[in-house]
Nucleic acid binder design. Structure first.
Length: 1175
DNA sequence: CCAGACGTTGTT
DNA sequence: GTCTGG
DNA sequence: CCAGACGTTGTT
DNA sequence: GTCTGG
């Protein structure tokens, strides 16, 4: 407590600010003086007002936590107030009381002890504590145990008397109670070794419930073992070992790490622990992998051989996405790796070194260093690796670790000296760390002269003198001098260099140079004398040449590698900025608007009116002329539903001619009809012009689409004067033969699909093969193309064409992401839902993406799908996940038609717009559903509702769990709209072929559930849309397209009217499904596959359940009063579960009764979105 | 006025 | 943000 | 909705 | 029991 107080003092500057201090104490005084008064009031109040009490307790806790001592009087009064609260019915309140005691016990010396000596307070504590420890509510019991633990500190004897109660609590089912109870018992007995041993064996014999308790026991046991030193026969060790087979990973790990940490453990004893750690290595949980590898690392230090078994797993961990794990795995491998595995290991490491932080890198380097000592023969490989690392980015610690390691290798392996030194030389060329540079220079001075070819180091060293700052220069000078001193042949050259250094700016450098120079000159003189005396001449041509390099070069520019200035290119300078940005941005923009530009241009031509929307333009113009000819003609193809428009961009490159009335005449080989030509009026020299040719697609035979056009350009030539530009009046007709133009299948598929879709499907439908791939370019006939597309998409026409209104003015929506799982599913389903959609498939040229889908709707546009990436199909969607939701477009664009809809993925579980936290999961209340009967009362819902934030949640169906009488388990059902499909998917027919199942999903009619949404802007990050599903008192929903539209159209339809749309839905169906769906991690088709009811030895239930199913399936009307949906007299157990109720009452009710009353039971739960996630 | 909550399910 | 309770 | 966790010490 | 994560 005092500690806390001190801490607070420290934080507020030790109370040095008198004003602040004064203010603070005034506040506290006010607060604490009011507390006893409040408590007194509470004390006298009957019945106790829990809220008030909680409030006051919170205040007490606050005061205690603030470090403010409660006065003895206050504490006593507070305590007696609490004694009343100990008996409260509200467990939260009881819990708070004990927690308060815990806090009070922290200041026990001041309050409890003092008071207890003179009063009955401690006795009261005792009495209530004993009660509390065996409280039925686990959290109260836990709190009491924790409080008792703290009381231990002030009154050991008292707590000892509660041991019986604590022992009882230790057998509790509740894991926290058990944990705390064992903790308490241990603390009572921790000085009695025998008692602790007994305790462990007693409580572990029948198994503990709490994994924490196990962990604690393991720790206690291993501590005992350590003290006992030796003797692994102990039952304590057996206990720890048995924990390796515990079902909780936590316990298993605790046991393994306890064994590993036991001093003097033999390899045999380690083996089981290591093998569970090995298992952890491949766990999907990062924490486990980390724990395992860290522990193995520890083992590797003491018993490297024990870890070898895990080497494979560790190698897998090297590529772990978690860097800490990878690093540990590597270091462990390095510790245990065999000599032969080193090469492979180094390869693995190098790829990942660049991705980890320096801290980790140092660890790895140190491990490598250890490896060098272990396998001296491998020094070459290791050194090579180190040099690669040395060249990479890295901080000082890292580089120093590498340099240390290299130096140690050099010192221990004479063969590696040469390579080592020259690499280090390279390193100091570009080394930003003074310490490392001087260190290396020192080493060079020491080792360099002893090598076979010492002269090669000189230039590196001398460069340091020229380029670096003082410290390094000084180091370099010393190193140079050492070469001179140890190598007579080089001495003269060294002297030359040192003479330069004498002129250095820095005192230290100059002094050293001078000193060395003097000494070495002396030596040189002596040598000279010696040579003359001996009559010997010395020739060292190699050295001469090496030294010449630097002696001849002017000192400003020695052998500098980095002094190449970046030349500024005049081009870059000249280019104006605007051009540069434009070139960067344009590609995207152009691509996005190309089609639009064409559309505009073509629409401006009167001849092309009434062609309908432009489906497609060929991506690249095709050149119809050779290069370097008189004219340049390039053709772009535009595809309309029944026509083609060829656009010819022409340029005249003859400066003595002007062309007029230019057209491109086309002759088709097939039944294409050239309808008209739109000429380019005039084509002066070098000014581009455009002419068009309009062609009708063959009507009679839509399959004969591959066609070649021969093209001839026709025009009138008028000569003109290249200089004056004067044009001759007289002109003459001429023509120019162009390359043939080919029209391919791809251009027409969109057209043909429309015509042949149904027929084509019937033909290819049976030979459906998912794996088959194809490209359009390989397709010969149209049927083949259609068939392939159909196969490729795994879809078939959802609607009969006779339902499609003959409306040419179609709107098209391009879904580029067809191949990402799920998109097509929704599209298909929506087709059904909207009931008015025709489907067309088009293709770009064969080089591009093979297929896009164009959906054209006659009456209603298919909703735009925003952010489809955020949606992920699942058979088992749970709250917090994202699902596609329909809403009015006006929510995004002010001007939009509010009846227009868009689809966006939203989070399930509405996050109110005012929510302050950063994480939606911190929302402390559940907004998965929204009761329709209280929607207007709850602010979290009525606010968004007031803003028209209504939406429709799309799902294949939802799951609902039904409580079964007498059984613990709950039976899940899948609930959905009855499907129009020929197959009855209800559970009575088990002989569904996989094929027919697939078809069911192709035509699935989505469940449309009314919802409300809100838009939340987190403090950080993107705004989040989220929704709640509205529940009603019976199976209700939005029935039909009209209801869906009205519900969404907040612009036109008021909240009042919209709420009326929540009609009961009587045509909903369901079937029982497997328990697999219970765990939301299970995402397989099994989730919604019809399953048998869980019967388990209770044929009676099975019978009745079936009866219920039958009853429901036949929609046998059971009249029931609206208010009493339960207790069906047929005796079906637990039938009260509302969702099953196809209540026969709605009609009457829906029409008349009040809004809030009208809504019957619920719909809610999981939506499995996409079937068939292709892969 | 400020402080504090803001919600669902089911069961007893 | 907006409503409710004190 | 269901499944599964829920904690402590001390040190930096 | 209560909360969080899926």
């Amino acid at each position: 407590m005092l500690k806390k107080f001190d801490k607070k003092d420290e934080e507020s500057g030790g109370g040095s600010n008198p004003l602040q201090h004064l203010e603070k104490s005034a506040v506290l005084q006010e607060a604490s003086s009011s507390t006893p008064v409040c408590l007194a009031r509470v004390f006298n109040e009957t019945p106790i007002n829990p809220r008030k009490c909680a409030h006051i307790l919170t205040k007490i806790l606050y005061l205690i936590n603030q470090g403010e001592h409660l006065g003895t009087t206050e504490a006593t009064e507070a305590f007696f107030a609490m004694t009343k609260l100990f008996q409260s019915n509200d467990p939260t309140l009881r819990r708070m009381c004990y927690l308060t005691i815990k806090e009070m016990s922290c200041i026990a010396e001041d309050v409890i002890i003092v008071t207890s000596r003179q009063s009955t307070m401690l006795q009261a504590v005792e009495r209530y504590m004993k009660q509390a420890i065996v409280d039925k509510v686990p959290s109260v019991s836990s709190s009491a145990l924790v409080s008792s633990l703290h009381l231990l500190k002030c009154s050991f004897d008292v707590v000892k008397r509660w041991v019986n109660e604590a022992q009882e609590a230790a057998s509790s089912d509740n894991i926290m109670v058990q944990y705390h109870a064992l903790g308490l018992l241990y603390h009572v007995r921790k000085n009695d070794r025998l008692a602790v041993s007994k305790m462990i064996s007693k409580f572990t014999r029948h198994g503990l419930k709490s994994p924490f308790a196990y962990c604690m026991m393991i720790r206690v046991a291993s501590k005992q073992l350590e003290e006992e030193d030796g003797s692994r026969d102990s039952p304590l060790f057996d206990f720890i070992e048995s924990c390796l087979r515990n079902k909780h990973e936590m316990v298993v790990y605790e046991a393994a790490s306890a064994i590993v940490n036991l001093p003097g453990c033999s390899a045999k004893e380690l083996a089981p622990a290591v093998s569970v750690l090995q298992l952890f290595c491949s766990s999907p949980k990062a924490a486990l992998r980390y724990a395992a590898v860290r522990t193995l690392n520890k083992v590797a230090m003491k018993h490297p051989s024990a870890v070898t078994a895990c080497n494979l797993d560790l190698e897998n961990l090297v590529t772990d996405s978690n860097r800490s794990i990878a690093t540990l795995a590597i270091t462990t491998l390095l510790k245990t790796g065999s000599e032969s595995s080193i090469d492979r290991l180094m390869k693995q490491i190098s790829s990942f070194m660049s991705e980890i932080s320096d801290e980790f890198k140092v660890v790895v380097v140190q491990a490598i260093s250890a490896l060098c000592q272990k396998y001296p023969r491998k020094h070459a490989v290791l050194m090579n690796f180190l040099f690669t690392m040395l060249r990479e980015e890295g901080g000082f610690e890292y580089k120093r670790a590498i340099v240390d390691c290299i130096i140690s290798i050099i010192e221990e392996n004479s063969e590696s000296k040469e390579t080592g030194l020259s690499h280090l030389c390279e390193f100091i060329e570009d080394c930003e760390f003074t310490v490392l540079a001087t260190r290396i220079l020192h080493l060079l001075g020491q080792e360099g002269p002893k090598t076979n070819n010492p002269s090669k180091y000189i230039r590196f060293i001398y460069n340091r003198v020229v380029l670096e700052h003082e410290e390094v220069r000084a180091g370099a000078v010393s190193a140079l001098a050492k070469f001179g001193a140890q190598n007579e042949e080089m001495l003269p050259s060294i002297l030359v260099l040192l003479k330069r250094c004498v002129m250095d700016d820095d005192n230290e450098v100059r002094d050293r140079a001078t000193f060395y120079l003097n000494v070495l000159e002396q030596k040189q003189k002596a040598l000279n004398a010696g040579y003359i005396l001996n009559g010997l001449t010395v020739s060292i041509p190699g050295l001469e040449r090496a030294l010449q390099q630097y002696t001849l070069e002017p000192s400003e520019k020695p052998f500098d590698l980095k002094s190449v200035p970046l030349a500024t290119t005049p081009m870059a300078e000249q280019r104006p900025e605007s051009t540069a940005t434009a070139t960067v941005k344009q590609p995207e923009k152009v691509a996005a608007t190309r089609q639009e530009i064409f559309q505009e241009q073509l629409a401006a031509v009167p001849e092309f009116q009434g062609l309908g929307p432009l489906f497609k333009s060929s991506p690249e113009p095709v050149a119809l002329t050779e290069s370097e000819t008189e004219y340049v003609i390039r053709c772009t193809k535009h595809t309309f539903s029944d026509h083609l428009v060829f656009q010819f961009d022409c340029t005249n490159t003859l400066n003595d001619q002007t062309l007029e009335n230019v057209t491109v005449q086309m002759e088709p080989t097939e039944a294409y009809e050239v309808l008209s030509y739109v000429p380019a009026r005039s084509l002066p020299y070098n000014q581009p012009g455009t002419c068009y040719t309009l062609v009708a697609l063959p009507k009679e035979d839509p399959t004969a689409v591959a066609c070649t056009f021969s093209c001839v350009m026709k025009f009138t030539v008028k000569d003109c004067d290249p200089n004056t530009g004067e044009i001759d009046e007289e002109g003459y007709e001429d023509e120019y033969v162009l390359e043939d133009l080919e029209v391919t299948v791809a251009d027409h598929i969109q057209k043909v699909m429309k015509v042949n879709f149904e027929a084509a499907w019937d033909e290819v439908g049976d030979e459906f093969e998912k794996e088959e791939t194809f490209t359009l370019s390989t397709v010969k006939t149209l049927e083949e193309a259609v068939g392939n597309i159909v196969k490729f998409l795994g879809m078939h026409p959802c609607e009969r064409s006779d339902k499609v209104p003959e409306n040419k003015n179609t709107h098209t929506l391009l879904l580029a992401g067809v191949f990402r799982g799920g998109h097509d599913i929704l599209v298909r389903s929506r087709l059904l839902l909207l009931d008015t959609v025709t489907m067309q498939v088009t293709a770009r040229s064969s080089e591009e993406l093979p297929v896009d889908i164009i959906l054209a709707s006659g009456r209603q546009r298919l909703p735009e799908w925003r952010d489809p990436d955020k949606y992920c199909p699942s058979y088992n969607k749970s709250p917090q996940s994202s699902s596609p939701v329909l809403l009015s477009r006006q929510h995004f664009e002010k001007g939009a038609d509010s009846s227009e809809q868009v689809i966006i993925p939203m989070r399930w579980g509405l996050v109110p717009s005012w929510f302050k936290e950063s994480d939606p999961s911190k929302l402390q209340f559940n907004t998965t559903n929204c009761r329709s009967d209280t929607i207007l009362e709850k602010q979290s819902f009525k606010v968004p509702l007031g803003k028209g934030r209504r939406c429709v949640v799309l799902a294949d169906g939802f799951y609902e769990w039904q409580r079964c009488q007498g059984r613990n388990q709950r039976q899940p059902y899948f609930i959905y709209f009855p499907q129009i499909s020929t197959e009855k998917s209800a559970g009575n027919d088990a002989s569904d072929s996989p094929d027919s199942k697939e078809k069911v999903w192709d035509n699935w009619r989505l469940l449309t559930m009314a919802g409300i949404f809100d838009c939340w802007e987190p403090p950080e990050g993107e705004r989040l849309y989220s929704y709640s599903i509205i529940t009603v008192d019976s199976c209700k929903g939005l029935n039909g397209e009209e209801a869906v539209s009205k519900w969404l159209d907040f612009g036109e339809v008021t909240t009042q009217e919209a709420l009326k749309l929540i009609h009961p839905i009587d045509n909903i169906t369901f079937h029982p499904v497997s328990q697999v769906v219970n765990n939301s991690r299970n995402n397989t088709p099994e989730c919604l596959a019809p399953a048998d009811l869980v019967t388990k030895k209770e044929p009676k239930t099975s019978g009745s359940s079936q009866r219920m199913m039958q009853w429901l399936a036949t929609k046998s009307p059971k009249k029931e009063a609206p208010g009493s949906p339960k207790k069906d007299e047929s005796g079906v157990p637990q039938w009260s579960s509302q969702f099953l109720q196809k209540s026969p009452l709605p009609a009457k009710r829906g029409a008349t009764s009040s809004l809030l009353e009208r809504w019957l039971k619920q719909e809610k739960e999981d939506e499995p979105m996409a079937k068939r996630p292709h892969s």
